[in-house]
């Protein structure tokens, strides 16, 4: 499907996942859907690429997983932010704000 697809960098995907989880625990499918809806489909990811990222972040200790029951009564794996993950998110957001502010100022500068 053609569209304004943005090639997501690995690190960016991680931050987005962290942000998604900052409101509470979710399973993988819900994370993907939330990203899709919130960004008005501007950000399109190959759904499969979400999962290696989740495992990797689990290894790094940013998120924790536990098996639970989905809304529809199926067994699902739920992810949750750890304290480390929360700190990581704060740092990434701050860095992002600084970067985007600077880039924005450059792009909007009048010659």
């Amino acid at each position: 499907m053609p569209g304004p697809e943005t090639d997501l960098l690995q690190g960016t995907l991680d931050v987005l996942i962290l942000k998604t989880l900052s409101w509470g625990s979710r399973h993988g499918y819900a994370i993907g859907k939330w990203l899709e809806n919130t960004s008005d489909e501007t950000i399109r990811i190959e759904e499969g690429s979400l999962y290696p990222a989740l495992y990797r972040m689990e290894r790094k200790g940013w998120i924790e997983a536990a098996w639970g029951m989905s809304e529809l009564g199926r067994r699902a794996k739920f992810y949750e932010l750890t304290a480390t993950g929360r700190a990581r998110l704060r740092a990434e957001v701050a860095a992002w704000r600084r970067l985007s502010g600077a880039v924005g100022r450059i792009l909007e500068a009048r010659v």
Partner: peptide, 13 residues
């Protein structure tokens, strides 16, 4: 764990 998690995703979609 991996199989079941991915299967869950596909089924939901």
């Amino acid at each position: 764990e991996v199989d079941e998690e991915l299967a869950f995703h596909l089924d939901m979609r």
